[in-house]
Amino acid sequence: MEDEALIREILSGSKSAMELLVKKYYNIVFSYIYRYSGNYHLSYDLTQETFIKMIKAIRTFKISDGKFKSYILKIAVNTCKDYYKSNYYKNVGKNFEEFDDEKISGENVSDFFEYKEDRQKVKKAILNLPDFQREAILLKFYYDMKISEIADITNANESTVKSRIYQGLEKVRKEIEGGEKLDKRRKEI
């Protein structure tokens, strides 16, 4: 069913339409928040928060405003931003850096480690970006949003978004290549 029809049904009181909508967008929202925060526990809660904000505002959602996907991602982006603005995070959240609980069924153990190391590198590079660059890059490369959509979601104009992505990518590359050089040196020693 189209999003538009789902939303109409939700407004007329259909729970099952809401279930469909949540199931359809859960992964998108969750993966965005996880990639932004790098923390699973936090992501569960912020995902729930995002959906609650969505349903509370659903009356005001107009199809003419654009795709539902960018609508809900915009809420997710702002929810994350608000959370990281909170001074609880400043005080305590940073110490909560979780150890990575990624479960991977690797057939080959060395493959598995290599994979895990790579993943860790990319994760770190992305998490180390300033938040506005991180937002833009995630939206572009994981959700294939148009520059104009990203501009709308992050409240910036298009040229700003482009330069954020550009600079962000440079930083990511630097971090990863820098890391690789370091690794090589370590291995040589």
Partner: peptide, 8 residues
Amino acid sequence: LFSKYTVN
């Protein structure tokens, strides 16, 4: 590059 950052 980006496909490496997987999500459970």
